[in-house]
């Protein structure tokens, strides 16, 4: 999962100080692994270098956390593309997908879209596996089925999340 894109997504809701960004990130996505300050500032400087964020203003007193960062147009485009592109269907995607859904909700995008796109990607792979299974021998079938069942589990999670989007949106906005 990309911390950079996540921070960009958070910045989309409005300019923030680095410290605020870290807090916002930890609050939403860092339940078990909070970010280090160093990570935040190094990422921000990379984004600054790539022109995806800009320093909106510096408050008196100096020090790194006196800068307010804002997202640039290029940054927004990047976030949008990221959200609209399904992840490669593979196990343990939930963190990335969750982050994407939350960012979509925060930025007022259609979160369901994120999930629908992901479902399509999953299904595409499942079709592929199903096709391979139909033509293959028993060993192929068993291997394909294993993958299919895992993908199905992910897809079911996607469905469930979709069904709970409204609830999630309420919690995030509160």
């Amino acid at each position: 999962m990309s911390i950079g894109l996540t921070l960009l997504g958070l910045l989309e809701t409005g300019p923030r100080h680095g410290y605020d960004l870290k807090r916002a990130y930890d609050e939403r996505f860092g339940h078990d692994r909070p970010l280090h300050y160093g990570q935040v500032y190094s990422t921000l400087s990379r984004l600054l270098r790539d022109g995806l964020v800009e320093v909106e203003g510096v408050e008196a007193g100096g020090g790194p956390d006196r800068k307010r960062y804002a997202i640039t147009g290029a940054g927004v485009t990047d976030v949008h593309e990221w959200l609209a592109t399904p992840e490669k269907p593979e196990p343990y995607l939930q963190n990335t997908l969750y982050t994407k859904v939350v960012l979509a909700l925060l930025s007022g995008r259609a979160a369901a879209e994120v999930l629908d796109v992901q479902r399509s990607a999953h299904l595409r792979l499942m079709r592929e596996l199903t096709r391979r299974k139909s033509g293959g021998d028993l060993a192929d079938q068993l291997i394909c089925d294993h993958a299919l069942f895992h993908l199905e589990a992910d897809l079911r999670w996607l469905e469930l999340t979709t069904a709970r989007l409204n609830q999630l949106a309420k919690e995030i906005r509160s």
Binding site: S120, L123, M126, R127, E152, R156
Partner: peptide, 13 residues
């Protein structure tokens, strides 16, 4: 069921 849907050519939600 996703595994049943996997027999399709495309899906409509």
């Amino acid at each position: 069921e996703p595994r049943v849907a996997a027999y399709s050519d495309r899906e409509v939600v």
